[in-house]
Each structure stands twice: as C-alpha cells, then as structure tokens.
C-alpha cells in the first residue's frame, strides 16, 4: 500500500468531485462523474479491495454514468448551477 499513490488518488478524487458538481454542462458533469468513479475504483484496488474495485468499475462507473447520460439526452444539458 504505497501511501504516496494513495494520497495522490485521494486528492484527485476530491478535485474530480468538486469539478463534477460545478460544471454547468450536465453531459460533461456526467462524464467527470465517470472519471470520479474510476479514480475511486483505482483507489480501492490499491487498498487490496479488488472485488469492490471490480464492481465499482463495472456497476458504479460504467453503468451509472451511462444512465446519467441517457437521462441528460432525454432532458436538457443546460444547468443553472
């Protein structure tokens, strides 16, 4: 468990979460949320939780990002905040 890599990932996670919530375009926000989920999956893989990382990559990042993008396509990409 290399702590430098772990610390770097944690900082990147917080940055990705803040960006995903501040971007005005919802499609971009969904994609950055996908990045956030993949970073989280990487972090768990480093923490020897490979089952959880596998599930997060497949279920958390892959499918939920696709659900969000499908919903944004059916509604609107404009967001006021």
């Amino acid at each position: 468990m290399i702590w430098q890599f772990d610390t770097l990932l944690l900082v990147l996670l917080i940055v990705a979460a803040v960006i995903s919530l501040r971007i005005k375009d919802l499609l971009a926000a969904s994609v950055v949320f996908g990045i956030y989920s993949f970073l989280m999956c990487l972090l768990w893989a480093v923490m020897a939780a490979v089952d959880v990382a596998f599930t997060e990559a497949a279920v958390g990042a892959g499918v939920s990002t696709l659900f969000m993008i499908a919903t944004v396509y059916q509604t609107t990409r404009r967001s006021s905040d």
Partner: peptide
C-alpha cells in the same frame, strides 16, 4: 443546495461512494 435535479443526484452518488470509501 444544488438547484438542478441531476446535480443533486451526482451529489447523492458522491455521498454514497464516500461511505463506501
């Protein structure tokens, strides 16, 4: 505080993922 519904949902997902962390 977010007014957009999908932004609220992104916040909800970040909230759940943090508990998993």
């Amino acid at each position: 505080t977010k007014r957009n519904l999908i932004k609220k949902l992104i916040g909800m997902s970040v909230f759940s993922t943090a508990i998993i962390l």
